[in-house]
Simulated assay, not measured.
Amino acid sequence: MESNEAGLPIVFVHGMRVSGTMWRPVIQAIGERHPMAAPDLPGHGERRGEPFGMPGAVATVAEAVDDLGGRALLVGLSLGGYVALATAGAHPDRVLGLVAMGCTALPRGLFGAVYRGTARLAAKHPEEANRLSAFAFRRTLPRPQADAMAAGGLSSEAMPGIVEAVRGTDPLASLSAYPGPVWLVNGERDHFRSHERRFLRACRDGRLIIRPRCGHLTSLTDTTDVARQVLDAAAVSTARTHEATPQGNVR
């Protein structure tokens, strides 16, 4: 007999300059059994114009978790992945599992410098950068996913502050502080996978998944498969929770 019990809550965290609407196709593919949320981070979507800071972004995700009952699986892509990592490190008791997509490059050195320059250029010409971003989404993704990316509006003017905030984080320390299960998911052609092995070693309970022939955003092309990976992570996280002793340790 099928259980009527609600599934594990899931909080989705969006990428840079887009909004929570980017996750609509995946949320629709998952269906209604899992309570889900995809909040807008500061400076994005309905919060466009607010300054972006990592503490505020983490607080936004933690609040979304609380709204769903206080504990949830986090799923983030790109900026959303870095924010999810920071949230798991800061609030491990609220995060039952973590799916971090396209965020296993340390945001420093030459890599960070390139993105700092790109962000500054975009912020000087935000409307043009927004139009180019929307065009890139349409060229890269199927129509439903491309539309979802732009549906909440684009915020290229926020990019310099976002890059500086991410550069100030220590994702390896966040992973080391988090005891729960972690899925590091990268497209085979994703430029954000350069330090994936270091990220994996930092996990206490980690696994690395490579999506063949996918880039940074095209990992979202197969919505059904992304939804399946999220549901698999939710099932493992649920099982770990049920195995926990009353003291909160996992047998």
Rank of each mutant, 00 (worst) to 15 (best):
Q145Y: 02
A113Q: 15
S133E: 06
A146V: 01
S174M: 05
P171S: 08
L106F: 09
A150K: 00
L141F: 00
N130T: 00
L175H: 11
H195W: 13
P142Y: 01
F135G: 00
E157G: 11
V163S: 01
A105W: 08
G109M: 07
H125K: 15
R198A: 15
L154Y: 03
L110A: 14
E128F: 05
E127Q: 15
G161S: 06
G206S: 07
T104Y: 02
N130L: 01
L132G: 04
V114F: 04
R131Q: 14
L184R: 09
A136V: 02
A123C: 06
R193I: 06
R116M: 02
G117K: 12
N130I: 00
G117I: 07
A165W: 03
L154H: 02
Y115A: 03
G112W: 14
R211Y: 07
G152P: 03
G187F: 03
G180C: 10
F192G: 06
D170T: 13
R131C: 01
L208E: 00
R116Q: 10
A173F: 11
R207L: 00
A119D: 06
R211D: 10
Q145C: 10
S176K: 15
E188N: 05
T140G: 05
S155P: 11
R120E: 11
R198S: 15
A202S: 15
C203D: 07
S174H: 14
P181H: 04
H191R: 12
S176M: 07
G117A: 09
N186P: 05
P181T: 03
W183N: 09
L184S: 04
R189I: 06
G112R: 07
G112H: 12
R193P: 04
F135W: 12
I162H: 03
I209C: 02
A158I: 12
L110S: 11
L200Q: 10
N186G: 05
R198P: 05
R201Q: 11
A113I: 08
L106R: 13
A134C: 07
A158E: 12
L110P: 04
P107F: 12
E127M: 02
N186S: 14
S156C: 12
P171M: 10
T140A: 02
A129V: 01
R138D: 11
A165V: 04
R167Y: 00
A136W: 09
V163F: 06
E128Q: 15
G112N: 09
I162T: 09
A136I: 05
G206H: 10
R143K: 15
G117M: 12
